[in-house]
Amino acid sequence: MEKIAFLGLGHMGAPMAARLVGTQHPLTVWNRNAEKAAPLVAAGAALAPTPAEAVRGADVVITMLAGPAALEAVAEAIVPELRPGAHWVEMSTVGPGAVGKLAARLGERVTLVDAPVVGSVDRAAAGRLAIFAGGAADGVAEILARLGTVTRTGASGSGAALKLVLNAAALGGIALVAEALALADALGLDEDTARAALAAGPLGGAVGRAHATDVHFAAALAAKDLALATEGARLPALDAVAEHYRRAAEDPATAHEDIVHTVTRIRRTS
């Protein structure tokens, strides 16, 4: 019975960890705000007061954190406590650079799998996430299958790289929809007519996400993801998109709200 430690119980981490409660794998959880762990503890998970205590004796460690800085802080705390032969499944959106640094830090003692996800809280709760796994994922295949559908992407870091590509495309499309609607506003078009026409075209998926009400992807996290993406290549169009999300992330009214509020902001300020 492999012991699992799950670190990070935010909007995505909490429903993902809930998928592992009640399985044959004893589950220990940790979160910076311990109150968020209460439903998991009530369902049978153990709560650790620190990251180090969470991973002590664990066979599999899963991290779902806000970004590279949070990952670095957790790594500093847990690397000395990791059991030789353990698997670390890093599921945050941190980019291949952060994964590479972590892999170098772990060496051969621990198997690192980068396995970021696509999907929001509804798909996380239902175990229907799309998971992009880089590195040697065979040892955690059964656990990942409880969280969603796994696509093997290749060598270590490739899952993190593909996640940046997908997020950049999605966030760029949503920003383009917002600007197209701003143009429709300026030209005096009826909003429902403009939205319906856009939804019937190649940006249909982005139109739906730009007006979704049952998901959550904070503007601050979107800005972080685009910053990681535009560090990796010269991307003039995405630089402009990133500026939209950066401004939304700097605004207390929208920073921690879903990106649908960023769409409204773009339309208002374009």
Rank of each mutant, 00 (worst) to 15 (best):
D185H: 09
R123T: 11
A43H: 08
R267Y: 03
K224R: 14
E76Y: 13
A42D: 09
A70I: 07
A160Y: 04
T153N: 02
D239L: 00
V215A: 14
D185I: 01
Q24E: 11
H261I: 00
A17C: 15
L183S: 05
P84A: 02
R109H: 07
E76A: 15
A196L: 02
A178K: 09
V89K: 03
A218E: 13
D190E: 06
T230R: 09
A14C: 09
R19A: 10
A104N: 15
E35N: 06
A160R: 00
P252H: 07
A98N: 02
I62P: 15
R109W: 03
I4F: 00
A133F: 00
G135Q: 12
T151R: 12
G188A: 09
A178W: 02
A14P: 12
L144I: 08
M91Q: 13
A42C: 04
A178V: 11
G201E: 05
F6E: 14
A103Q: 11
D225A: 05
R247N: 12
V61H: 04
N33D: 13
L147S: 10
L7R: 13
Y245I: 02
R128S: 07
V121D: 11
A98M: 08
R123F: 07
A255Q: 05
A70D: 15
K101Y: 01
K163C: 06
L9V: 14
L235Y: 00
G148Q: 05
L203A: 10
G85T: 00
A115W: 13
V55C: 11
A186F: 01
L82V: 02
A104F: 08
R246W: 06
V165W: 00
P116F: 15
A180I: 00
A168S: 10
T63K: 13
E243G: 09
R247E: 13
A249D: 08
E179F: 09
V60G: 02
M1Y: 00
L82C: 03
V60S: 10
L171N: 01
S120D: 13
G172L: 08
L27C: 11
G95I: 09
L40K: 07
G127E: 03
K3W: 03
L171A: 04
A52N: 04
A141T: 10
G204W: 08
A219W: 07
L106A: 03
V118P: 07
V165R: 00
A38G: 10
V41F: 10
E2L: 09
Y245T: 05
T50R: 06
A54Q: 00
V118T: 15
G159F: 10
A170P: 01
L20K: 11
R246H: 08
R19L: 10
V89S: 11
G57S: 06
A169E: 02
I131G: 08
L164F: 03
V113M: 05
A220N: 14
A184G: 13
M1C: 04
T50Q: 06
V29T: 06
V263N: 04
A237V: 09
L228C: 04
G135F: 01
E81A: 14
A237C: 06
A223G: 02
I143R: 15
G201I: 01
L27Q: 12
S270H: 08
V74L: 13
T262G: 05
V260L: 02
A38V: 14
M12R: 09
E76H: 15
E243P: 00
H244V: 10
